[in-house]
Nucleic acid binder design. Structure first.
Lengths: 226, 226
DNA sequence: TGTTGTAAACTGGCATATCAGATTCAGATG
DNA sequence: CATCTGAATCTGATATGCCAGTTTACAACA
């Protein structure tokens, strides 16, 4: 059998496109999605669109009821709590592996990424509040965590973290609330903890980082939907 | 919109059926799957079968290449390692939450389940080596871990654990190798550790349990595919 | 004005047909 | 016997059309 990487199928393109539309705010939370309209818009039939929506549904970005409709899911605070429990588990494991397996070059890369992140979080609000800038910041934050996971050497863990859409929710609410406040050198200190050859310490530092993000997001939620 | 539970669709039935056929050995590892043949066999068209196979593909039980074919995936030892890294993360988190949130009744239930499991693992091989008996044992083991997760109070974590198919792989190789050896009171001692109101201890005990299972499975693998 | 009934419009689920690429195997060629 | 060849036969991907529920808009009526 041919194990070459599959060419980008229409289903895949639909998935990427719809996902981007949701994350970028083109499809705000709660928006109804019509398979037929969307298919016409994307220049394809409804089948690949349905495939994509099914994937997004299992991932929790979208919800669908038979013969009723599909819409962009509005995560509840209970959803957020649940997702963060999973994320705490996965990211702390990722931190353990990073502290055990990362090379000096990789550690340097992570430390630099952390510095960049902290700078952007410090200046971002003042300089540029556009959606594009916030989206870029969101992506960089995601990259920071994904690079840490990649350095752990287990693709399965990377995939599990990527499938956990807390950062996605984070971005959605960031967009709504324009919330980008963080303590000084927040990521910098985390990165330093990860580089100290102490898996338990790395685990704990990442747990604190994740829980800080969770509480921050829950505060935002309570303001948005009070 | 109507939020009632959806009726069992053909896609869902196809998913359950195919999954059961794989786990029960009706579709052995590596078997090619024809959408058309399977659809005729299940009395439906290829569309719901394709939906089901897509889900099973993202879950890793099945692999598919465009215009080539679909077959039951043979997990590699690298797959197994990766899955166990994720499982270690999720189950240790589950153990933490259990030690913090479980009620006395729930703890009693888990302790009893552990005793039953230990008995079956001790006697199972001697009494009954049928596939059905091994499958039942596998399901009970899975139930043990799922109940622990449920008592933690976070459905999202339960779902994440359920989506992690290490226990499934475990069953597949158990079937192939008839391996059911475990140390005396293996699950009993784990359950006792979970009930001591010490999240860190529970975390560690579960990590050891998971890693024991991983190494055991890797040994089996090295024998099977040496 | 407010309520109700009903039909049109819309939804996701599914069946069927077609397409292009991959595989396979009989038969020709050396 | 080994090797090449090409057509028949597979594969998954996709398009299209239909179906049976759900929602909605609007007219008829109180």
């Amino acid at each position: 059998m041919n194990r070459n990487p599959v060419a980008a199928s229409l289903s895949q393109r639909a998935y990427n496109d719809i996902r981007y539309r949701i994350l970028s705010g083109q499809l705000p939370l709660g928006t109804s999605i019509s398979r037929r309209t969307l298919a016409a818009d994307l220049g394809m039939s409804v089948v690949p669109v349905s495939d994509a929506l099914q994937r997004l549904s299992t991932e929790g970005l979208v919800e669908s009821w038979p013969r009723v409709g599909t819409r962009v899911r509005i995560p509840t605070s209970q959803d957020v709590r649940g997702h963060y429990v999973v994320r705490e588990a996965l990211e702390s494991q990722s931190a353990r592996l990073f502290s055990q397996k990362s090379t000096p070059e990789e550690r340097k890369e992570i430390l630099e990424l952390a510095e960049t992140l902290d700078q952007l979080y410090r200046n971002g609000n003042a300089d540029d509040e556009s959606k594009e800038a916030l989206f870029a910041l969101h992506q960089l934050h995601q990259q920071f965590h994904m690079r840490i996971a990649e350095c752990g050497g287990h693709p399965a863990l990377c995939q599990a973290i990527e499938n956990n859409h807390v950062l996605t929710f984070n971005w959605l609410y960031d967009t709504a609330a324009r919330r980008t406040k963080l303590p000084e050198r927040h990521h910098g200190r985390l990165a330093e903890s990860l580089c100290q050859d102490d898996p338990e310490k790395a685990d704990l530092a990442m747990r604190e980082h994740v829980i800080y993000g969770r509480d921050d997001l829950l505060r935002t939620l309570s303001v948005l939907f009070r």
